[in-house]
């Protein structure tokens, strides 16, 4: 671990100023990702600005029937919050599917969204990685690709975003409140993360020194049901091979398989939490049969590129979407 100075910020503006004013400064929240990277040599900041003392730890009702979750709220808290469980089950489910109880007590909302890929080469400073060391090459391509991206990847990077929470927020049409040196701004959640392109070193669209202060959730559509289905090797405490956040608004007609609205987002397949808009369109106004679901996912995956190591993700994704939508239409949760 390289030496750094440590400061504890007492208000958001001074935290932002401290980091914005120094190119090698970073924010420290829960630490579950940053401290890991400090030890691995993946992160080598000169200054660590601790933001856990800021008053960003509330979960508050929004004026529009939505919810505002402070950036410093620990992952276990929204998962246990009655409002989240009732109105945003996909969010509670995604949080509960992530990491372990101990880590959920530690990891913050913003830290979860800003956590970095678990690509084994990114975490191994003895191997080339464009995300860690721009221009050094991508070791994952042609290497261990089991967790690699199949959508939106580039020749420079096939890393996937590891967050479960982020996938859930994609179908909730959340927005992120960001404080920068020039003040506060809001951006749609879908604009927070970015595809790797030729600069995989940047995971997000945030400028250096910008601090996420909150996540805002609009009220869910009336009658919406939602869930999160995660497929992983172990039954618990493992990152997703693929995951699906699904939100369904049943139609007024009798058959629960007829949906007025379907929203889908995929985890474990891209550098960003992937909103499957093409699949959603294909499923709008259609009876949710296995065949229709498979066809919709295939449509979404038309742009996918797979390798020997990731070929399985097509079939797994189809199956996971089937399982998620079946759970929402039948109300019976069979995969846990």
């Amino acid at each position: 671990m390289t030496p750094f100075t440590y400061t504890r910020a007492h208000d958001p503006a001074s935290a932002v100023a401290a980091v914005a004013g120094r190119p090698d400064a970073v924010f420290l929240a829960g630490g579950s990702n940053l401290v890991d990277h400090l030890k691995l040599g993946v992160a080598t900041p000169g200054e660590v600005v601790d933001v856990t003392g800021l008053a960003l730890t509330g979960i508050e009702d929004g004026s529009d029937g939505g919810l505002r979750i402070g950036a410093g709220v620990r992952n276990s808290d929204p998962a246990a919050d009655a409002r989240v469980r009732e109105r945003y089950p996909v969010l509670a489910r995604a949080l509960l599917a992530g990491a372990s109880p101990q880590i959920r007590h530690q990891a913050s909302t913003a830290g979860n969204l800003l956590q970095r890929t678990r690509c084994v080469y990114f975490q191994d400073t003895t191997t080339p990685c464009n995300k860690r060391e721009p221009g050094s090459g991508c070791s994952a391509i042609g290497g261990y690709e089991r967790y690699a991206a199949i959508l939106g990847a580039s020749p420079a990077c096939v890393a996937t975003h590891p967050s479960d929470l982020a996938v859930a927020l994609r179908v909730l049409d959340a927005s992120v409140v960001v404080l920068g040196p020039d003040g506060e701004r809001r951006l749609p959640f879908g604009e927070l993360h970015r595809l790797p392109g030729d600069d995989p070193s940047r995971d997000t669209t945030l400028a250096h020194g910008e601090l996420v202060t909150a996540v805002e959730l609009p009220a869910p559509p009336p009658g919406a049901r939602s869930t999160y289905v995660k497929v992983r090797d172990r039954a618990s405490y493992a990152f997703a091979l693929v995951s699906v956040a699904a939100l369904l608004v049943p139609s007024d007609a009798g058959d629960p398989r007829d949906a007025a609205q379907v929203r889908l987002a995929f985890g474990g397949v891209a550098h960003v939490p992937w909103r499957a808009t093409r699949a959603e369109e294909a499923l709008t106004g259609v009876r949710l049969t296995d065949e229709a679901i498979d066809a919709a996912v295939e449509l979404e995956l038309e742009a996918a590129t797979t390798s020997e190591g990731t070929a399985y993700k097509r079939a797994m994704l189809r199956g996971t979407v089937r399982a998620a939508l079946r759970e929402l239409s039948t109300g019976e949760r069979t995969l846990r």
């Binding site: 191994d124 290497g143 172990r234």
Partner: peptide, 24 residues
């Protein structure tokens, strides 16, 4: 998983080398 291009095991921690957890 030993990466033949490098010669060492790249799944070199308990997050990428899975051993059974309680839930399994």
């Amino acid at each position: 998983v030993r990466d033949p291009r490098f010669g060492h095991v790249v799944t070199q921690d308990l997050a990428s080398y899975h051993v059974a957890a309680n839930a399994d």
